[in-house]
Design a protein around this nucleic acid. Structure first.
Lengths: 125, 125, 125, 125
DNA sequence: GTGGTCTAGACCACA
DNA sequence: GTGGTCTAGACCACC
Protein backbone atom coordinates (compact mmCIF):
# COMPACT_ATOMS: atom_id res chain seq x y z
CA UNK A 1 0.00 0.00 0.00
CA UNK A 2 3.04 2.20 0.19
CA UNK A 3 3.56 2.25 -3.55
CA UNK A 4 7.08 2.34 -4.76
CA UNK A 5 6.68 0.72 -8.11
CA UNK A 6 4.69 3.28 -10.02
CA UNK A 7 7.25 6.05 -10.12
CA UNK A 8 6.28 7.24 -13.57
CA UNK A 9 7.36 10.81 -14.15
CA UNK A 10 4.77 13.60 -14.09
CA UNK A 11 2.85 13.88 -17.32
CA UNK A 12 4.00 17.42 -17.97
CA UNK A 13 7.61 16.26 -17.78
CA UNK A 14 6.95 13.25 -20.00
CA UNK A 15 5.50 15.50 -22.66
CA UNK A 16 8.37 17.96 -22.29
CA UNK A 17 10.83 15.10 -22.73
CA UNK A 18 9.00 13.93 -25.81
CA UNK A 19 9.22 17.39 -27.33
CA UNK A 20 12.89 17.66 -26.48
CA UNK A 21 13.53 14.35 -28.17
CA UNK A 22 11.71 15.53 -31.26
CA UNK A 23 13.83 18.67 -31.35
CA UNK A 24 17.07 16.77 -30.93
CA UNK A 25 16.05 14.38 -33.68
CA UNK A 26 15.26 17.36 -35.90
CA UNK A 27 11.66 16.30 -36.26
CA UNK A 28 10.96 19.75 -34.91
CA UNK A 29 13.07 22.45 -36.50
CA UNK A 30 14.61 25.49 -34.88
CA UNK A 31 12.13 28.36 -34.81
CA UNK A 32 9.19 26.10 -35.62
CA UNK A 33 5.88 26.82 -33.94
CA UNK A 34 4.59 24.26 -31.50
CA UNK A 35 0.87 23.45 -31.39
CA UNK A 36 -1.06 25.89 -29.22
CA UNK A 37 -1.58 24.97 -25.60
CA UNK A 38 -5.17 24.02 -26.24
CA UNK A 39 -4.46 22.04 -29.37
CA UNK A 40 -1.59 20.13 -27.85
CA UNK A 41 -3.81 19.39 -24.86
CA UNK A 42 -6.35 17.75 -27.13
CA UNK A 43 -3.68 15.86 -29.08
CA UNK A 44 -2.14 14.58 -25.89
CA UNK A 45 -5.43 13.91 -24.16
CA UNK A 46 -4.59 16.03 -21.13
CA UNK A 47 -5.77 19.24 -19.56
CA UNK A 48 -4.56 22.51 -21.09
CA UNK A 49 -3.04 23.47 -17.75
CA UNK A 50 -0.77 20.47 -17.97
CA UNK A 51 0.52 21.55 -21.37
CA UNK A 52 0.91 25.07 -20.05
CA UNK A 53 3.23 23.66 -17.44
CA UNK A 54 5.10 21.68 -20.08
CA UNK A 55 5.68 24.79 -22.14
CA UNK A 56 6.72 26.80 -19.07
CA UNK A 57 9.21 24.12 -18.19
CA UNK A 58 10.63 24.15 -21.70
CA UNK A 59 10.86 27.91 -21.67
CA UNK A 60 12.62 27.86 -18.33
CA UNK A 61 15.22 25.61 -19.91
CA UNK A 62 15.60 27.98 -22.84
CA UNK A 63 14.37 25.39 -25.30
CA UNK A 64 11.33 27.29 -26.47
CA UNK A 65 10.29 30.91 -26.58
CA UNK A 66 6.74 32.09 -26.13
CA UNK A 67 5.36 35.16 -27.78
CA UNK A 68 2.15 36.38 -26.22
CA UNK A 69 -0.73 36.17 -28.58
CA UNK A 70 1.35 34.36 -31.15
CA UNK A 71 2.33 31.01 -29.78
CA UNK A 72 5.24 28.94 -28.57
CA UNK A 73 8.26 28.44 -30.75
CA UNK A 74 11.36 26.26 -30.67
CA UNK A 75 14.32 28.49 -29.88
CA UNK A 76 16.48 29.57 -32.77
CA UNK A 77 19.60 29.39 -30.66
CA UNK A 78 21.61 26.55 -32.15
CA UNK A 79 23.82 26.50 -29.07
CA UNK A 80 20.95 25.32 -26.88
CA UNK A 81 20.50 22.34 -29.14
CA UNK A 82 24.12 21.38 -28.92
CA UNK A 83 24.13 21.53 -25.15
CA UNK A 84 20.92 19.54 -25.12
CA UNK A 85 22.40 16.86 -27.30
CA UNK A 86 25.48 16.58 -25.16
CA UNK A 87 23.47 16.35 -21.98
CA UNK A 88 21.30 13.61 -23.43
CA UNK A 89 24.38 11.71 -24.57
CA UNK A 90 25.77 11.87 -21.07
CA UNK A 91 22.51 10.52 -19.78
CA UNK A 92 22.29 7.67 -22.26
CA UNK A 93 25.91 6.66 -21.75
CA UNK A 94 25.52 6.89 -17.99
CA UNK A 95 22.45 4.68 -18.06
CA UNK A 96 24.28 2.20 -20.25
CA UNK A 97 27.30 2.04 -18.01
CA UNK A 98 25.13 1.58 -14.94
CA UNK A 99 23.16 -1.22 -16.59
CA UNK A 100 26.25 -3.02 -17.79
CA UNK A 101 27.95 -2.71 -14.45
CA UNK A 102 24.92 -4.31 -12.91
CA UNK A 103 25.54 -7.24 -15.19
CA UNK A 104 29.07 -7.38 -13.88
CA UNK A 105 30.92 -6.04 -16.89
CA UNK A 106 34.04 -3.90 -16.85
CA UNK A 107 34.53 -0.86 -19.04
CA UNK A 108 36.69 -2.85 -21.43
CA UNK A 109 34.08 -5.55 -21.71
CA UNK A 110 31.41 -2.95 -22.40
CA UNK A 111 33.36 -1.56 -25.28
CA UNK A 112 34.00 -5.05 -26.57
CA UNK A 113 30.32 -5.93 -26.26
CA UNK A 114 29.39 -2.76 -28.10
CA UNK A 115 31.91 -3.41 -30.83
CA UNK A 116 30.55 -6.90 -31.42
CA UNK A 117 26.98 -5.76 -31.51
CA UNK A 118 25.24 -6.33 -34.80
CA UNK A 119 21.73 -5.06 -34.94
CA UNK A 120 19.48 -7.90 -35.94
CA UNK A 121 17.48 -9.16 -33.02
CA UNK A 122 14.71 -6.69 -32.39
CA UNK A 123 12.21 -9.12 -30.92
CA UNK A 124 11.77 -8.51 -27.24
CA UNK A 125 10.97 -12.08 -26.26
CA UNK B 1 -8.99 7.69 -23.90
CA UNK B 2 -7.56 9.45 -20.91
CA UNK B 3 -4.93 7.13 -19.50
CA UNK B 4 -1.82 6.86 -21.56
CA UNK B 5 0.92 8.36 -19.47
CA UNK B 6 1.19 6.11 -16.45
CA UNK B 7 2.61 3.24 -18.44
CA UNK B 8 5.33 2.13 -16.05
CA UNK B 9 5.88 -1.64 -16.32
CA UNK B 10 3.64 -3.93 -14.30
CA UNK B 11 4.90 -4.35 -10.78
CA UNK B 12 5.23 -8.12 -11.09
CA UNK B 13 7.58 -7.65 -14.03
CA UNK B 14 9.59 -5.04 -12.20
CA UNK B 15 10.11 -7.43 -9.32
CA UNK B 16 10.99 -10.28 -11.68
CA UNK B 17 13.57 -8.08 -13.35
CA UNK B 18 15.05 -7.22 -9.99
CA UNK B 19 15.40 -10.89 -9.10
CA UNK B 20 16.95 -11.68 -12.44
CA UNK B 21 19.47 -8.94 -11.92
CA UNK B 22 20.33 -10.32 -8.52
CA UNK B 23 20.89 -13.75 -10.01
CA UNK B 24 23.05 -12.45 -12.84
CA UNK B 25 25.13 -10.48 -10.37
CA UNK B 26 25.51 -13.60 -8.22
CA UNK B 27 23.81 -11.97 -5.27
CA UNK B 28 21.47 -14.94 -5.53
CA UNK B 29 23.29 -18.20 -6.12
CA UNK B 30 22.22 -21.12 -8.30
CA UNK B 31 19.95 -23.45 -6.37
CA UNK B 32 19.33 -20.91 -3.64
CA UNK B 33 15.87 -20.71 -2.14
CA UNK B 34 13.88 -17.56 -2.75
CA UNK B 35 11.77 -16.06 0.04
CA UNK B 36 8.29 -17.51 0.25
CA UNK B 37 5.56 -15.75 -1.67
CA UNK B 38 4.14 -14.31 1.53
CA UNK B 39 7.48 -13.18 2.86
CA UNK B 40 8.55 -11.62 -0.40
CA UNK B 41 5.19 -9.89 -0.58
CA UNK B 42 5.81 -8.27 2.76
CA UNK B 43 9.41 -7.36 1.89
CA UNK B 44 8.30 -5.76 -1.34
CA UNK B 45 5.21 -4.18 0.11
CA UNK B 46 2.88 -5.66 -2.48
CA UNK B 47 0.07 -8.14 -2.57
CA UNK B 48 1.05 -11.87 -2.44
CA UNK B 49 -0.83 -12.40 -5.70
CA UNK B 50 1.62 -10.07 -7.37
CA UNK B 51 4.59 -12.12 -6.17
CA UNK B 52 2.83 -15.29 -7.27
CA UNK B 53 2.72 -13.87 -10.78
CA UNK B 54 6.35 -12.87 -10.52
CA UNK B 55 7.40 -16.39 -9.62
CA UNK B 56 5.22 -17.88 -12.36
CA UNK B 57 6.84 -15.58 -14.85
CA UNK B 58 10.31 -16.58 -13.69
CA UNK B 59 9.39 -20.26 -13.83
CA UNK B 60 8.03 -19.83 -17.34
CA UNK B 61 11.43 -18.53 -18.34
CA UNK B 62 13.17 -21.46 -16.69
CA UNK B 63 14.92 -19.23 -14.21
CA UNK B 64 13.38 -20.68 -11.06
CA UNK B 65 11.83 -24.00 -10.13
CA UNK B 66 8.95 -24.44 -7.77
CA UNK B 67 8.93 -27.56 -5.59
CA UNK B 68 5.59 -28.18 -3.95
CA UNK B 69 5.80 -27.84 -0.22
CA UNK B 70 9.40 -26.69 -0.33
CA UNK B 71 9.43 -23.34 -2.02
CA UNK B 72 10.88 -21.62 -5.03
CA UNK B 73 14.52 -22.10 -6.00
CA UNK B 74 16.89 -20.53 -8.47
CA UNK B 75 17.59 -23.04 -11.22
CA UNK B 76 20.83 -25.01 -10.95
CA UNK B 77 21.28 -25.01 -14.68
CA UNK B 78 24.36 -22.89 -15.27
CA UNK B 79 23.47 -22.65 -18.93
CA UNK B 80 20.33 -20.67 -18.12
CA UNK B 81 22.43 -18.10 -16.36
CA UNK B 82 24.76 -17.65 -19.27
CA UNK B 83 21.94 -17.27 -21.74
CA UNK B 84 20.24 -14.86 -19.37
CA UNK B 85 23.31 -12.73 -19.07
CA UNK B 86 23.82 -12.63 -22.81
CA UNK B 87 20.24 -11.80 -23.48
CA UNK B 88 20.28 -8.95 -21.01
CA UNK B 89 23.51 -7.64 -22.42
CA UNK B 90 22.03 -7.72 -25.90
CA UNK B 91 19.05 -5.84 -24.63
CA UNK B 92 21.08 -3.20 -22.84
CA UNK B 93 23.43 -2.73 -25.75
CA UNK B 94 20.55 -2.65 -28.19
CA UNK B 95 18.78 0.01 -26.20
CA UNK B 96 21.98 2.00 -26.01
CA UNK B 97 22.63 1.82 -29.71
CA UNK B 98 19.07 2.83 -30.49
CA UNK B 99 19.25 5.80 -28.14
CA UNK B 100 22.56 7.00 -29.46
CA UNK B 101 21.46 6.64 -33.06
CA UNK B 102 18.50 8.79 -32.22
CA UNK B 103 20.98 11.44 -31.17
CA UNK B 104 22.67 11.10 -34.51
CA UNK B 105 25.81 9.22 -33.51
CA UNK B 106 27.64 6.60 -35.51
CA UNK B 107 28.96 3.37 -34.03
CA UNK B 108 32.47 4.79 -33.90
CA UNK B 109 31.26 7.89 -32.11
CA UNK B 110 29.39 5.75 -29.61
CA UNK B 111 32.52 3.84 -28.72
CA UNK B 112 34.43 7.08 -28.44
CA UNK B 113 31.76 8.59 -26.25
CA UNK B 114 31.78 5.52 -24.05
CA UNK B 115 35.53 5.57 -23.80
CA UNK B 116 35.53 9.18 -22.70
CA UNK B 117 32.86 8.65 -20.12
CA UNK B 118 33.90 9.28 -16.56
CA UNK B 119 31.16 8.65 -14.06
CA UNK B 120 30.59 11.18 -11.30
CA UNK B 121 30.41 8.66 -8.50
CA UNK B 122 33.21 6.28 -9.31
CA UNK B 123 33.27 4.05 -6.27
CA UNK B 124 30.18 1.96 -6.70
CA UNK B 125 31.37 -1.61 -6.93
CA UNK C 1 -10.60 48.57 -23.36
CA UNK C 2 -7.09 47.55 -24.26
CA UNK C 3 -5.84 47.87 -20.71
CA UNK C 4 -2.30 48.99 -20.21
CA UNK C 5 -2.57 50.57 -16.84
CA UNK C 6 -3.30 47.59 -14.64
CA UNK C 7 0.02 45.81 -14.99
CA UNK C 8 0.10 44.51 -11.43
CA UNK C 9 2.39 41.51 -11.10
CA UNK C 10 0.90 38.02 -10.73
CA UNK C 11 -0.18 37.23 -7.21
CA UNK C 12 2.18 34.29 -6.90
CA UNK C 13 5.10 36.58 -7.72
CA UNK C 14 3.92 39.27 -5.34
CA UNK C 15 3.80 36.76 -2.52
CA UNK C 16 7.21 35.38 -3.48
CA UNK C 17 8.61 38.91 -3.43
CA UNK C 18 7.10 39.52 -0.04
CA UNK C 19 8.73 36.37 1.32
CA UNK C 20 12.06 37.32 -0.22
CA UNK C 21 11.85 40.71 1.43
CA UNK C 22 11.14 39.09 4.76
CA UNK C 23 14.15 36.85 4.37
CA UNK C 24 16.43 39.69 3.40
CA UNK C 25 15.21 41.72 6.36
CA UNK C 26 15.87 38.71 8.59
CA UNK C 27 12.25 38.53 9.66
CA UNK C 28 12.52 34.99 8.37
CA UNK C 29 15.68 33.21 9.46
CA UNK C 30 17.80 30.80 7.47
CA UNK C 31 16.47 27.27 7.81
CA UNK C 32 13.15 28.44 9.19
CA UNK C 33 10.02 26.60 8.15
CA UNK C 34 7.52 28.50 6.08
CA UNK C 35 3.79 28.01 6.69
CA UNK C 36 2.42 25.01 4.85
CA UNK C 37 0.97 25.57 1.42
CA UNK C 38 -2.56 25.29 2.74
CA UNK C 39 -1.96 27.50 5.75
CA UNK C 40 -0.24 30.21 3.77
CA UNK C 41 -3.10 30.05 1.28
CA UNK C 42 -5.56 30.84 4.03
CA UNK C 43 -3.37 33.56 5.50
CA UNK C 44 -2.97 35.18 2.11
CA UNK C 45 -6.54 34.67 1.05
CA UNK C 46 -5.63 32.85 -2.14
CA UNK C 47 -5.95 29.37 -3.56
CA UNK C 48 -3.45 26.74 -2.39
CA UNK C 49 -2.35 26.24 -5.97
CA UNK C 50 -1.21 29.82 -6.09
CA UNK C 51 0.98 29.34 -3.03
CA UNK C 52 2.27 26.12 -4.50
CA UNK C 53 3.43 28.13 -7.45
CA UNK C 54 5.00 30.71 -5.17
CA UNK C 55 6.97 28.04 -3.34
CA UNK C 56 8.02 26.39 -6.60
CA UNK C 57 9.26 29.72 -7.85
CA UNK C 58 11.25 30.29 -4.68
CA UNK C 59 12.70 26.81 -4.86
CA UNK C 60 13.69 27.34 -8.47
CA UNK C 61 15.64 30.38 -7.34
CA UNK C 62 17.31 28.36 -4.60
CA UNK C 63 15.77 30.49 -1.88
CA UNK C 64 13.81 27.72 -0.20
CA UNK C 65 14.09 23.97 -0.01
CA UNK C 66 11.12 21.66 0.17
CA UNK C 67 11.20 18.37 1.97
CA UNK C 68 8.37 16.06 1.02
CA UNK C 69 6.07 15.39 3.89
CA UNK C 70 7.86 17.90 6.05
CA UNK C 71 7.37 21.33 4.61
CA UNK C 72 9.12 24.21 2.93
CA UNK C 73 12.17 25.77 4.53
CA UNK C 74 14.28 28.85 3.93
CA UNK C 75 17.62 27.71 2.53
CA UNK C 76 20.50 27.51 4.96
CA UNK C 77 22.93 28.64 2.30
CA UNK C 78 24.12 32.04 3.48
CA UNK C 79 25.57 32.73 0.05
CA UNK C 80 22.13 32.80 -1.53
CA UNK C 81 21.13 35.53 0.85
CA UNK C 82 24.12 37.66 0.02
CA UNK C 83 23.49 37.38 -3.69
CA UNK C 84 19.84 38.18 -3.08
CA UNK C 85 20.72 41.27 -1.12
CA UNK C 86 23.11 42.50 -3.79
CA UNK C 87 20.59 41.93 -6.51
CA UNK C 88 17.94 43.86 -4.63
CA UNK C 89 20.36 46.70 -4.00
CA UNK C 90 21.09 46.90 -7.69
CA UNK C 91 17.40 47.04 -8.36
CA UNK C 92 16.69 49.74 -5.80
CA UNK C 93 19.61 51.88 -6.92
CA UNK C 94 18.66 51.40 -10.56
CA UNK C 95 15.11 52.47 -9.89
CA UNK C 96 16.35 55.50 -7.99
CA UNK C 97 18.70 56.58 -10.72
CA UNK C 98 15.99 56.19 -13.33
CA UNK C 99 13.54 58.22 -11.31
CA UNK C 100 16.00 61.00 -10.62
CA UNK C 101 17.10 61.14 -14.22
CA UNK C 102 13.47 61.57 -15.15
CA UNK C 103 13.47 64.63 -12.95
CA UNK C 104 16.45 65.90 -14.86
CA UNK C 105 19.14 65.37 -12.25
CA UNK C 106 22.73 64.40 -12.91
CA UNK C 107 24.59 61.77 -10.92
CA UNK C 108 26.34 64.45 -8.89
CA UNK C 109 23.07 66.13 -8.09
CA UNK C 110 21.59 62.82 -7.01
CA UNK C 111 24.37 62.26 -4.53
CA UNK C 112 24.02 65.81 -3.29
CA UNK C 113 20.28 65.38 -2.93
CA UNK C 114 20.78 62.16 -1.03
CA UNK C 115 23.38 63.71 1.22
CA UNK C 116 21.07 66.56 2.12
CA UNK C 117 18.15 64.29 2.81
CA UNK C 118 16.92 64.38 6.37
CA UNK C 119 14.11 62.00 7.12
CA UNK C 120 11.25 63.97 8.56
CA UNK C 121 8.45 64.33 6.08
CA UNK C 122 6.58 61.07 5.92
CA UNK C 123 3.20 62.48 4.96
CA UNK C 124 2.35 61.55 1.41
CA UNK C 125 0.18 64.55 0.64
CA UNK D 1 -11.92 39.62 1.45
CA UNK D 2 -10.54 38.21 -1.74
CA UNK D 3 -9.12 41.20 -3.57
CA UNK D 4 -5.97 42.54 -2.07
CA UNK D 5 -3.32 41.93 -4.65
CA UNK D 6 -4.37 44.00 -7.64
CA UNK D 7 -3.67 47.31 -5.94
CA UNK D 8 -1.97 49.14 -8.79
CA UNK D 9 -2.66 52.87 -8.59
CA UNK D 10 -5.85 54.22 -10.17
CA UNK D 11 -5.42 54.91 -13.85
CA UNK D 12 -6.32 58.57 -13.52
CA UNK D 13 -3.48 59.01 -11.02
CA UNK D 14 -1.05 57.15 -13.24
CA UNK D 15 -1.83 59.48 -16.10
CA UNK D 16 -1.59 62.54 -13.87
CA UNK D 17 1.83 61.39 -12.71
CA UNK D 18 2.93 60.95 -16.28
CA UNK D 19 1.87 64.48 -17.14
CA UNK D 20 3.60 65.88 -14.08
CA UNK D 21 6.78 64.13 -15.08
CA UNK D 22 6.54 65.59 -18.55
CA UNK D 23 6.16 69.06 -17.09
CA UNK D 24 9.05 68.66 -14.72
CA UNK D 25 11.25 67.44 -17.55
CA UNK D 26 10.18 70.44 -19.64
CA UNK D 27 8.69 68.23 -22.32
CA UNK D 28 5.56 70.24 -21.59
CA UNK D 29 6.24 73.94 -21.22
CA UNK D 30 4.65 76.40 -18.84
CA UNK D 31 1.45 77.77 -20.30
CA UNK D 32 1.24 75.08 -22.96
CA UNK D 33 -2.12 73.67 -23.86
CA UNK D 34 -2.82 70.05 -23.00
CA UNK D 35 -4.75 67.85 -25.43
CA UNK D 36 -8.50 68.03 -25.02
CA UNK D 37 -10.13 65.52 -22.73
CA UNK D 38 -11.48 63.58 -25.67
CA UNK D 39 -8.22 63.59 -27.56
CA UNK D 40 -6.17 62.59 -24.55
CA UNK D 41 -8.69 59.83 -23.85
CA UNK D 42 -8.12 58.38 -27.28
CA UNK D 43 -4.34 58.76 -27.05
CA UNK D 44 -4.31 57.00 -23.72
CA UNK D 45 -6.86 54.42 -24.63
CA UNK D 46 -9.09 55.17 -21.69
CA UNK D 47 -12.51 56.59 -21.05
CA UNK D 48 -12.87 60.40 -21.28
CA UNK D 49 -14.24 60.40 -17.75
CA UNK D 50 -10.93 59.08 -16.54
CA UNK D 51 -9.06 61.95 -18.19
CA UNK D 52 -11.55 64.39 -16.75
CA UNK D 53 -10.60 63.15 -13.29
CA UNK D 54 -6.94 63.41 -14.17
CA UNK D 55 -7.30 67.05 -15.17
CA UNK D 56 -9.35 67.81 -12.07
CA UNK D 57 -6.67 66.27 -9.92
CA UNK D 58 -3.99 68.34 -11.64
CA UNK D 59 -6.03 71.48 -11.26
CA UNK D 60 -6.58 70.78 -7.58
CA UNK D 61 -2.81 70.70 -7.19
CA UNK D 62 -2.45 73.98 -9.04
CA UNK D 63 -0.51 72.39 -11.83
CA UNK D 64 -2.95 73.13 -14.63
CA UNK D 65 -5.64 75.71 -15.22
CA UNK D 66 -8.86 75.10 -17.07
CA UNK D 67 -10.30 77.94 -19.12
CA UNK D 68 -13.88 77.38 -20.18
CA UNK D 69 -14.18 77.00 -23.89
CA UNK D 70 -10.44 77.09 -24.42
CA UNK D 71 -9.00 74.00 -22.84
CA UNK D 72 -6.58 72.96 -20.16
CA UNK D 73 -3.21 74.65 -19.80
CA UNK D 74 -0.09 74.07 -17.80
CA UNK D 75 0.19 76.75 -15.14
CA UNK D 76 2.50 79.67 -15.89
CA UNK D 77 3.53 79.94 -12.29
CA UNK D 78 7.19 79.02 -12.26
CA UNK D 79 7.04 78.60 -8.52
CA UNK D 80 4.67 75.66 -8.84
CA UNK D 81 7.17 73.88 -10.99
CA UNK D 82 9.96 74.34 -8.54
CA UNK D 83 7.91 73.13 -5.63
CA UNK D 84 6.75 70.20 -7.72
CA UNK D 85 10.25 69.21 -8.59
CA UNK D 86 11.39 69.44 -5.01
CA UNK D 87 8.48 67.45 -3.74
CA UNK D 88 9.04 64.70 -6.27
CA UNK D 89 12.71 64.60 -5.46
CA UNK D 90 11.94 64.31 -1.78
CA UNK D 91 9.58 61.48 -2.55
CA UNK D 92 12.04 59.60 -4.73
CA UNK D 93 14.89 60.06 -2.29
CA UNK D 94 12.67 59.11 0.62
CA UNK D 95 11.57 55.94 -1.10
CA UNK D 96 15.18 55.13 -1.91
CA UNK D 97 16.36 55.65 1.64
CA UNK D 98 13.55 53.52 3.00
CA UNK D 99 14.28 50.70 0.58
CA UNK D 100 17.99 50.71 1.26
CA UNK D 101 17.50 50.82 5.00
CA UNK D 102 15.32 47.77 4.65
CA UNK D 103 18.32 46.06 3.10
CA UNK D 104 20.37 47.06 6.10
CA UNK D 105 22.46 49.85 4.59
CA UNK D 106 23.63 53.01 6.31
CA UNK D 107 23.50 56.44 4.70
CA UNK D 108 27.20 56.26 3.92
CA UNK D 109 26.81 52.89 2.29
CA UNK D 110 23.91 54.19 0.23
CA UNK D 111 26.02 57.00 -1.15
CA UNK D 112 28.82 54.59 -1.86
CA UNK D 113 26.46 52.18 -3.58
CA UNK D 114 25.07 55.01 -5.67
CA UNK D 115 28.51 56.24 -6.58
CA UNK D 116 29.54 52.78 -7.77
CA UNK D 117 26.41 52.30 -9.83
CA UNK D 118 26.97 51.91 -13.53
CA UNK D 119 23.79 51.50 -15.47
CA UNK D 120 23.62 48.81 -18.10
CA UNK D 121 22.07 50.96 -20.80
CA UNK D 122 23.98 54.19 -20.49
CA UNK D 123 22.80 56.09 -23.51
CA UNK D 124 19.31 57.11 -22.56
CA UNK D 125 19.34 60.88 -22.59
C1' DG E 1 -0.10 16.17 8.43
C1' DT E 2 3.42 17.66 4.12
C1' DG E 3 4.30 19.06 -0.92
C1' DG E 4 3.29 17.58 -6.01
C1' DT E 5 0.32 16.75 -9.79
C1' DC E 6 -3.86 16.97 -12.43
C1' DT E 7 -8.49 18.36 -14.00
C1' DA E 8 -12.22 21.53 -15.14
C1' DG E 9 -13.45 25.82 -16.05
C1' DA E 10 -12.81 30.81 -15.88
C1' DC E 11 -10.97 35.47 -16.93
C1' DC E 12 -7.20 38.44 -18.63
C1' DA E 13 -3.76 40.69 -21.87
C1' DC E 14 -1.80 40.74 -26.20
C1' DA E 15 -2.13 40.64 -31.35
C1' DG F 1 -7.05 33.28 -31.85
C1' DT F 2 -2.48 33.16 -28.48
C1' DG F 3 -0.22 32.29 -23.73
C1' DG F 4 -0.68 33.49 -18.49
C1' DT F 5 -2.98 33.42 -14.22
C1' DC F 6 -6.28 31.90 -10.82
C1' DT F 7 -9.81 29.10 -8.47
C1' DA F 8 -11.99 24.90 -6.76
C1' DG F 9 -11.52 20.51 -5.74
C1' DA F 10 -9.30 16.00 -6.20
C1' DC F 11 -5.85 12.27 -5.67
C1' DC F 12 -1.07 10.80 -4.82
C1' DA F 13 3.42 9.88 -2.34
C1' DC F 14 6.03 10.70 1.56
C1' DC F 15 6.66 11.16 6.73
Amino acid sequence: MTEEYAASKPIYIQIADRIIREIVRRELNLGEKLPSVREMAIQSGVNPNTIQRTYSELERKGIVETRRGQGTFVTEDEEVLIVLNERMQQEVVGQFVRNMKELGLSKTQMIESLRNYRESQDGEE
